[in-house]
Computed example of a mutant assay.
Amino acid sequence: MIEVEDKSKCDKEAVIKRLRRIEGQVKGIQRMVNDGKYCVDILIQVAAVRSAIDKVGGIILENHVKTCVKDTIEKSSDTAAKDKVIDELMYTMLKFMK
């Protein structure tokens, strides 16, 4: 979740702003393809979108670790819950890095 505290709200707004920018980039790529633009130019834009979406994912992952994971580890006395949140984090990171 991206709305745990005031700083996180700013992060949420920044993520939404980035996603809107990415949406505009994707629409631009669609126009380029539709207009028959040079393939290399399209591929450069695709790489830019991929990089931007990876950045958004990194921001969300960082927020998750600093809030949800941290809270569970600090506040829970249940070892199974701590193990579960760490396993979930590892699974998510492996999926994210693919």
Rank of each mutant, 00 (worst) to 15 (best):
K12F: 13
K12L: 14
K12R: 14
E13M: 10
E13T: 05
A14H: 13
V15H: 01
V15D: 05
V15P: 00
I16Y: 03
R18L: 12
R18T: 11
R20W: 04
R20F: 12
R21G: 09
I22H: 01
I22N: 05
E23F: 05
Q25N: 12
Q25C: 06
Q25P: 07
V26T: 12
V26A: 08
V26K: 00
V26W: 01
V26F: 03
K27H: 08
K27F: 03
K27G: 08
G28R: 01
I29G: 02
I29E: 00
Q30S: 12
Q30K: 13
Q30N: 10
Q30Y: 12
Q30C: 09
Q30I: 15
M32F: 12
M32D: 04
V33D: 11
N34H: 15
N34D: 15
N34Q: 15
N34E: 14
D35F: 09
D35N: 15
G36F: 12
G36M: 12
G36S: 11
K37W: 03
Y38K: 12
C39V: 15
C39H: 13
C39G: 09
V40W: 06
D41Y: 10
D41N: 14
D41T: 14
I42F: 12
I42R: 07
L43S: 15
I44Q: 10
I44G: 01
Q45G: 03
Q45S: 06
Q45I: 02
V46F: 14
A48G: 05
A48Y: 00
A48V: 07
V49C: 14
R50Y: 06
R50W: 07
R50Q: 12
S51C: 05
S51Q: 07
S51F: 02
A52N: 10
A52L: 13
I53W: 02
I53E: 02
D54C: 08
D54F: 04
D54E: 13
V56Y: 04
V56F: 07
V56H: 03
V56G: 02
V56E: 06
G57T: 07
G57I: 09
G58K: 05
G58A: 08
G58V: 04
I59S: 02
I60Y: 00
I60K: 01
L61S: 00
L61W: 02
E62D: 15
E62P: 02
E62V: 00
N63T: 06
N63C: 13
H64M: 08
V65Y: 04
V65H: 00
K66I: 05
T67N: 06
T67K: 01
T67H: 04
C68Y: 03
C68L: 02
C68F: 01
C68G: 02
V69I: 14
V69H: 05
V69C: 10
K70Q: 14
K70D: 11
K70I: 08
K70P: 02
D71F: 10
D71I: 03
D71H: 13
D71N: 13
T72D: 01
K75E: 15
K75F: 09
